[in-house]
């Protein structure tokens, strides 16, 4: 049994977007804070810290996860994916990201990272979603700028494009 004591700092290691990362965390350190403050991956944003707004959504071992409702220690040994890992290269956007830009599916961009993670996760598993599916999925996210419709449209466009570029999909 490993008991991490409250007042100590303990190593946490996981794979972030395919690359190993390591830093120290207290047991109470939230994954959202750990990613941002210890690892420097500030693309994941914190909007409510009670699991409602969805801005901090990441993927852990293939599961959509509110990183504000997760301890850094829980992610130890896991595969974590964040918005920083979505683009195929630093100077290129992925299909979903391009669809967002084309459709003005973001304004301030603060909630966007979480929405992208939910959509990326979903579209890999559901290649032909309906508008209702997308709206149901995204009801777990709050956006205060866009009124949502451009986001839904971007998601549907990206789904259609991904379906026709299976090559891209399999290695994206």
């Amino acid at each position: 049994m490993t008991r991490l004591s409250a007042d100590g700092r303990h190593p946490v290691r996981f794979k972030l977007n395919g690359r190993p990362v390591e830093a120290e965390a207290e047991p109470r350190t939230l994954l959202s804070d750990f990613l941002r403050q210890q690892i420097g991956a500030t693309g994941t944003h914190v909007g409510c810290e009670h699991g409602v707004c969805g801005a901090c959504t990441v993927i852990i071992d293939g599961m959509l996860t509110r990183s504000c409702l997760t301890l850094a220690a829980q992610a130890d040994g896991c595969e974590v994916q964040t918005v920083e890992g979505l683009a195929p290269s630093p100077d290129r956007l992925g299909i979903l990201q391009q669809a967002f830009r084309r459709n003005h599916a973001l304004q301030c961009g603060f909630c966007t990272a979480g929405i992208l993670m939910s959509l990326d996760h979903y579209l890999r598993r559901h290649p032909a979603p309906s508008e209702a599916d997308i709206r149901d999925l995204l009801s777990g996210h709050l956006c205060r700028c866009t009124g949502y419709t451009p986001i839904v449209k971007a998601a549907l466009e990206a789904a259609a494009e991904l379906a026709t570029t299976t090559q891209e999909k399999s290695d994206a």
Binding site: A41, T42, G43, V83, A87, L93, R101, F110, L116
Partner: peptide
């Protein structure tokens, strides 16, 4: 938008 590439890749620069 010129703003979007950074915001879509997690490279925005918000205060925190």
């Amino acid at each position: 938008r010129v703003e979007d590439a950074a915001l879509l890749t997690g490279r925005g620069r918000f205060i925190d």
